[in-house]
Design a protein around this nucleic acid. Sequence first.
DNA 1: TTTTAATAAATTGTATGCAAATAATTAGTC
DNA 2: GACTAATTATTTGCATACAATTTATTAAAA
Lengths: 149, 149
Amino acid sequence: MGTTNKENEYSMLKLENQLCFPLYACSKEIIRAYKPFLDEIDLTYTQYITMLVLWEKKEMNVKTLGENLYLDSGTLTPVLKKLESKGLIKRTRSKSDERNLLVSITKEGEALKEKAKDVPSKIGKCVNLSKKEAEELYRLLYMVIENIR
Amino acid sequence: MGTTNKENEYSMLKLENQLCFPLYACSKEIIRAYKPFLDEIDLTYTQYITMLVLWEKKEMNVKTLGENLYLDSGTLTPVLKKLESKGLIKRTRSKSDERNLLVSITKEGEALKEKAKDVPSKIGKCVNLSKKEAEELYRLLYMVIENIR
DNA sequence: TTTTAATAAATTGTATGCAAATAATTAGTC
DNA sequence: GACTAATTATTTGCATACAATTTATTAAAA
């Protein structure tokens, strides 16, 4: 009752008791799981999620892209230069506002979509959650993201 | 029925439909949430989770530490050198097997535990999940980690 | 309109994170 | 015991990530 001991006082300071750790570990493990599939289409994980957005939206400035991916221009600039050097995207300054860099997908970039088509289902097999579990996980993750921000 | 369209064929290739992305984003956001609290005790996130293990286990070789943290020696070596330069840990080769580097906590490292004591509850407030939700998230994350490995 | 403030990318500096190669040590095999 | 595995860290190279600064451009204010 009125007694506290070191066990209780510090028990939260255990790796296993911190939600952050499985989140961090799980994120890294799932990115590692993507690697063999992404190697086949010569994309890194960051390049892949960038292409995911562009396959859907076709054109976007760096700022909006960063808001979609939760990445800043310091991270995106080198990624986008790399994707451009591979011929998958084009980088052009906006005519109406030269501060904006417009990132748009090329024909080669569009073509890659076909090769990337099966990646999600392959990963789904690795993750191996039921539809219900996946939805619950998805819901909880976005809840945490919302709460933190 | 017999008709397929591009919408369905590629619908999984949307950022919002991939479980990996909220995982990746949530992990980064939660690490970002730690930053102000960890700044107060002058630790980076990686240094912090390393200290978590050492506060509990006192001494450990690099390999075992890496298994606990899901990190390899290429990542850990510079982190451990940094922690040693701060006086929080000691690095010594094992007498019985010189291949092993024993990482052990110092008095200063022990003392830091007191200052780190309240970090988990502060983060808990930011994450703001119910006990039930946190347990469910925890369970699902470890399930994914198990399934992937 | 000149000045100031705000915005968008790029750059710089620091810290990860991982694969692959290397070095040092120990264990196993002949 | 000499030779070959295997094991453990370290190093190297590449790719993020992010804070802070800088540069270029546009918007707003005086």
